[in-house]
Design a protein around this nucleic acid. Sequence first.
DNA 1: TCAGTGCGCAATACGGCCGG
DNA 2: CCGGCCGTATTGCGCACTGA
Length: 361
Amino acid sequence: MTDQLDDRIRDTPDATDAAAAAREARLERRCEYDRRWRKENHAKVRAYRLAYDAAHRDQVNAAARESSRRVRERARAEGEQERLEEERRERKRQASRDWYARNKDRHLESQRKTNARKKAEDPDKYRVDKAARTKKWADANREAVNARLRAKYREDPSKKAEAARDYYERNAEKVKARRRAYYAANRERQLEAQARWRAREKRRTELGLPPTRLHRTTAAERKANAAAADAFFARQYTPPQIRAIREQEPAPSREALDRWERESARARAASFLADDPTVRAALSDTELRHIEATERRRREREQQDSARAEREQLRREEEERLDAVARQVNERFRRGPRPPEQYDPAHPPAFPSSPSRGLGL
DNA sequence: TCAGTGCGCAATACGGCCGG
DNA sequence: CCGGCCGTATTGCGCACTGA
């Protein structure tokens, strides 16, 4: 009777749950106790483990092999799954692309209609949404977008310049006002820049350099220049042309050729260093400074050399003068005839020499 | 010396078109 | 519906230069 009752109670959902929960709790307590014991008796556990593994070496190894095989298999299966997923997605993308290609006009037409409808329904929302989308994309692709713009501008600046002129014509006052505001807001910096510019400009005019230091070339000009250079440097003469040229002009002599090469080298150097505005304009500030410094040093050296020569000349003259005075004094006080020269270069005195050492001259 | 501004170049804003 | 890309308009910035 009690058993039947117990069964009935146990069969009710509540009772079953309660019993399961109790079992769970007992198990949990047991596991907790085991964990603690193992932790506290780490050495014992390890020793037992080693002994067991040694005793069942083959079995343990087989189990390990089996386990890693299963791990590998699962990983492969997941990879395969992933690959299949990707393939499915790609097929879907391709199908979509095909569909758009086949129904382009239809798609665009419906899209235009949808956009127009949305715009008519709520223009502000349409605008704001579109702006947000565009901005999101632009923020994520800023560098690439700007690089493209720069390249495009470099390819042909004239279009943009024209647009700017156009805009300025329509908004001159607005632009000027903005410019004034900018000047006022950055007055100090503007004045500093102005001072720098004035100093540079002063130096430029003192050196006699031309005002424009940059020659801007358009893409078309660059292409034409490159083509001309190619045509010039890569030109090839046919053998008949070469023969004709040789017959026209007799072969120059070796001396003439050497002279021509020397003159050419000098001419190139002179041309490079010449105070020619177009040459100087092509030089960087550093190069200009270098050339100026070199010239300045050369001038200083020349001045020093000529000053030294002048001093030397004065010294020689003074010595000459003193010698003359001394000779006069000598003559005046000489009592007997002048003795012969002590040293006769035609008959130098005998010089002692060593047979084994010395300079051996 | 200063205020003003022309101008070139870069960056940004904005909306349209279209692929997916 | 979103994102990618484009063309055009606009703004930002600073050097170059002028006139008072």
